[in-house]
Write a protein that binds this DNA or RNA. Structure first.
Lengths: 163, 163
DNA sequence: ACAATTATGTTCATGGTTGAACATTAGAAA
DNA sequence: TTTCTAATGTTCAACCATGAACATAATTGT
């Protein structure tokens, strides 16, 4: 009898494992949060992917497309698709770097900064709201858990990329 | 001075709020987990969306496309796109219900069940692995937090749908 | 200096997801 | 019954995301 059969026959389905159930809940919460945020941002004509970009430009002015992609955990090509849209809307600027002619340095325009502040308020309100009465300390503990998981997964990523 | 300006000028950026930071960590962890799972499932030619479907058919045999979509928090059209693929691969079956000629009842084939078990082992292993030394009790607390958030967001969803 | 390697950004084909419009069927109301 | 309403599944166009292939530029090795 192999391991799989033992699992099945003793009713140890994945969804009986506490960690599995926990993670499914995390994933579902993320999905719902994303969908709700999408709805609340419609009137600004901004979607979560755009907001992620805008917020990072708000924090890190002059960042590079590559750096931005890394922070967002997406591919470079994704930035190449989305950034021109935001540029055409006059929300961001892309200026070539004088020293390194490969890179494009990104920054928010005045309009972009205003829009970002509006959108961030919506996002913050949604998060505060949906967390209802969760004690701050609990959130901090969740954050610590997640950071550890992120670290583990990033280590795996390095292995995959390096091997 | 309005609220937004007060926030900005006193350096209360969103990323300074514990709940905001916590949620960003959750979102990033989810994203990384999804990407890692995608890589680990490639050799089975299965992607997370497919696996979600398969696991739910594994648990709930004879489920309807609509019910499945609801469980997965996706639109019906999504199921209409994905299910025929799995059917063509011989992993699932769709049989019309005799009493209600609108619905299609879904079930795994033998091959589908086998593949699902393989994939679930990979997913379970990834979750256990990435959670490293997180105590089970912490995971349970995280799950409870997430369930509360899910409940809150679902209530909002109902309001949005009902209004 | 020259060649090879690495890094940045773009393009393209593919695939998942959505919402709106549609057809069919069930169920409720008249 | 007949009509109206609601539910189920499909199709379609649009969008985001990805990875591979490519072009350009910087860096390293010889």
């Amino acid at each position: 009898m192999n391991k799989k059969q033992a699992q099945i026959e003793s009713h140890h389905f994945p969804w009986d494992h506490p960690r599995f159930r926990s993670w499914i809940a995390v994933a579902r919460a993320c999905q719902l949060m994303q969908q709700t945020l999408t709805r609340r941002l419609t009137h600004l004509d901004v979607k979560p992917p755009h907001l992620d970009i805008l917020v990072n430009l708000y924090r890190f002015d002059g960042i590079t497309q590559q750096e931005l992609a890394r922070k967002l955990l997406v591919g470079r090509s994704n930035m190449s698709m989305l950034l021109p849209q935001l540029e055409k809307r006059g929300l961001i600027e892309r200026r070539g770097d004088a020293r390194d002619k490969r890179v494009l340095r990104l920054s928010l325009t005045s309009a972009g900064r205003t829009l970002t502040e509006e959108a961030m308020e919506i996002q913050t309100a949604l998060i505060e709201n949906s967390h209802g009465g969760e004690p701050i300390e609990d959130c901090v503990k969740v954050a610590e858990s997640m950071e550890r998981i992120i670290a583990t997964l990033l280590k795996e990523d390095d292995l995959a990329a390096g091997g």
